[in-house]
Amino acid sequence: MRLKITHKTTYSYDRAVQYALLQLRLTPRSCRGQTVLDWTSSITGGTVQVSYHDQFRNAVQLVQMDDGAETLEITSQGEIETENLNGVIGPGEGLAPLWLYRAPTPATTVGPMIRKLASGLKKEVEANPLGTVHKLSEAVAEAVTYTKGTTHAATTAEEAAQAGQGVCQDQAQVMIAAARHLGMPARYVSGYLLLDGTIDQEASHGWAEVWIAGLGWVGFDVANAVCPDDRYVRVALGRDYAEAAPVHGLRQGDAQEELCVSLQVQQ
């Protein structure tokens, strides 16, 4: 499937920002199941300082907001050719070892709620890992219902599980924490998804990938109860949301921020 994506993020401030640096992880990679045909990004109100690949081989741009700017606009767009792999991404790329994805991060540390969620599946893991993870995905969807506006970027997996609600990011992180608790390496993927019947979207998407012996990495989108197919575009990887976030930044001064995202994904 050929997907056309236009993603525009605008940060507006009520006064000039003193100093702001942002890491952007917005460039999709060419990998098994997807080929980047064309991709460009442009920034107004800021300047790209350096570009490089991070420890997960994500393409990163470091952007500094221009002196005196009150708005920062990041636009990326392009075309990706995707293939339906039924979620099975296969062996890893890059140098990050598998064991790295076994250990919890602060955002994916297991607490009583997630432990409870995963405990019933423990005995099946060895005999039927793939089936277990599917069950886990269902359990997470049930335990953390999709609700907007109750969580934020820094909400941890356990907090979301306690609250019983969250967005795709929270569901993915709960899934990751639980999978690791069951002894399976797991990671976060940020990316795009083609939706039925609508081109305009409010935000980019995020889901989990779990390592299953014999298959390699397999994607699970808890929010949509599917394994990612050719409607999905993988952009950045990490051990949790923070590491794969499309934008990660730091800002000085007390200017008030307003965020506006415009995203179109279409065939």
């Binding site: 640096l21 890491q23 300082q49 350096v50 570009s51 490089y52 690949h53 991070d54 990163v60 470091l62 500094q64 990660h248 930044g249 730091l250 000085q252």
Partner: peptide, 22 residues
């Protein structure tokens, strides 16, 4: 602080990015 410790403003924000970029 951008890469390691967002809580602290100590350090040089972005030095690791410049480092990885060579």
């Amino acid at each position: 602080p951008l890469t390691f410790n967002p809580e602290s403003m100590l350090g040089v924000p972005g030095i690791m990015d410049v480092y990885r970029a060579g």
